[in-house]
Design a protein around this nucleic acid. Structure first.
Lengths: 341, 341
DNA sequence: AACGCGGCTGTGAACGCTAACAATCGTTCT
DNA sequence: AGAACGATTGTTAGCGTTCACAGCCGCGTT
């Protein structure tokens, strides 16, 4: 006689027996196969509920082709953008009935990405989302013949890979034009790390926007996304009377910059205007509240997943440029103002 | 005749054939079984390399008992602590040869946790780490007879569940005592959301530390971890001459508070000292740099994983309180100073 | 000289599910 | 009326591993 709550969780055959059908019929019901008499379907569903049956995803993946798990390759640092994107992807995946397995990389190099992908392939993920917007990611991926459908996030115009990204060029242009419109003769730039695609895109858009406006292009200051690097940049910029407007490649750097300016008695926005990038939740509460470029990471995650799902059943790679960039937006706050007269 | 790069990835039997052994011997080599002649082992490993064989985790999980995947239940907001902990767990898991599947919850309630756990159970994870330090998480978990080994992060002294946490009480005490030592008559508190275990722990430690010191205990101000809530608290506190020291339940709230004080002309630390909690990377670059309590989330993640792995082969729950709390540390910066004389 | 034992390897059967095909039945078409 | 058809269900065979149980070998024992 069976115990009411057996140690072993119910499997499909248990459900089948209880419902008086074959295990295949149970499978059909579970997978929404059309040709099952509705009375039978009900009987099966009742049995499922009664036994608290949950299909085993491992067996499912092994038997059929597709697993209902997606892989996400992210990396090892807590940066707002990637973290927010990951969340967006996960949420969208869950909504679509997929699980999410993550791998973070410490190495940004070829092997790192390769290993991550292998680890995911081992788990038979149906597809992967790669949130690793380094300039060399695309190259690394191209040389990996894993055959898993993949979507790259934020990789910009890298080429042959399906990618979703925020329009970095438009964002940087928004920032620079905002400052120029306020009457600043030129705009300085604290850029992000050079191995990041986005950093390069922002920098080059900054440069070309200035050039188009006929403004002189000051040298870019190096940064690495961290507040500390922004702080150091701020210390260098603080003494220079030519500096009236600074565009930071992200909000953390802007925070550090603000700190340095504050220390050195540079008033923002009276002496210098500052614009950031990302619109992290804290931006509104910096001193002063930071004007910045908002990126909708949630939307990125969502589109990214949509694209991956399309990729899963649409075999060809004809999807090329069908997916438009996500548009960034300027959020004007108190850190920017008219140029000193 | 086989193509050199077949569309179908190699499976164990392919390796076996190439090495001239049985599939079982291949399995033995892969799992480090002792009784394989070293010459045979070499032969198999060579074949593995040659075919670029990777064992199928799905089949492995199905056939054997254990899958090499752990689940992490997190939730839907980008908060520094949980994000950092997740990263720590993932890193530790990867080091131990485990994959990580994540599920985020939007609902904090019983069903939310239950669904998350079911989703993970479906994937046959070997164990789960739950990063959801709500006060009701413990209750929700106890009522779930899923039978999966689980470790809860940051759940404090909740009781019957294996848990790893930073010593919130010690942390809050550190903060309050730091301020009292500086000569402040009492310390105000902007607390976190009441459904968070940690928020309650910090609040009650704040209260008891004040009481022990014979200081009056002002009413706690509500917050929800966000900078905005800190800002609002700051606006309320700014007018009050009795307020000379504020302990914020996290750094974001402290940021908002600083912003509000700045707006209202309250000088920090001259008029009011402020202490935060977490030591987010930005804390050092706030205006002024924030004195705060550092939590080592990476260590939390690591211990958490260690505990889970112990739990996996050590069946009994005799591990109870064997795992000590992670000690927090005071990081003194410029936002605190002596009381006004 | 036969026995037994330990190191090494192979065989068959799960694991829980889906895919492909076969079987059954009541209809509908010619 | 006989056959073919569509809807519904069952049967059999894997998916790629590990597990349990044999085999085989050569050596030291009795």
């Amino acid at each position: 006689m069976d115990q009411p709550s057996p140690p072993r969780p119910a499997v499909m055959i248990d459900v089948a027996r209880l419902a008086g059908v074959s295990h295949q019929t149970v499978s059909r019901v579970l997978n929404g196969h059309p040709s099952v008499r509705s009375e039978t379907r009900e009987r099966v569903l009742t049995a499922v509920r009664q036994l608290n049956y949950r299909p085993n995803a491992l067996a499912r993946g092994l038997a059929g082709r597709r697993s209902r798990v997606l892989g996400v390759v992210s990396f090892d640092t807590i940066l707002y953008g990637p973290a927010a994107t990951l969340l967006g992807v996960e949420r969208a995946a869950r909504a679509a009935g997929y699980g999410v397995s993550i791998v973070t990389l410490e190495q940004l190099d070829h092997d790192g990405v390769g290993d991550a992908l292998s680890a995911l392939a081992e788990q038979s993920v149906a597809g992967v989302v790669i949130i690793a917007p380094f300039t060399n990611t695309a190259a690394a991926l191209r040389s990996l013949p894993t055959g898993i459908p993949a979507v790259v996030v934020e990789a910009g115009t890298s080429g042959a890979l399906p990618a979703i990204s925020v329009d970095q060029v438009a964002g940087a242009r928004l920032a620079v034009q905002h400052l120029l419109t306020l009457g600043h003769a030129t705009v300085w730039h604290v850029r992000g790390p050079q191995n990041w695609r986005e950093a390069r895109d922002r920098e080059s858009a900054w440069r070309s926007t200035l050039e188009e406006a006929g403004a002189t292009v000051p040298p870019a200051i190096d940064g690495d996304w961290s507040a500390r690097s922004g702080y150091e940049a701020g210390l260098r910029l603080a003494g220079d009377p030519r500096v009236t407007a600074v565009f930071c490649a992200n909000d953390q750097q802007a925070l550090g910059l603000l700190r340095a300016f504050h220390e050195r008695g540079v008033r923002v926005p009276d002496d210098v205007s500052v614009v950031g990038f990302d619109d992290i939740p804290e931006a509104e509460f910096m001193s002063p509240p930071l004007t910045t470029i908002r990126q909708d990471f949630d939307e990125v995650g969502r589109r990214c997943l949509g694209m991956l799902l399309d990729l899963l059943d649409a075999p060809p790679d004809l999807l090329g440029e069908a997916y438009p960039r996500v548009a960034p937006a300027l959020v004007a706050r108190a850190s920017t103002g008219p140029a000193r007269s």
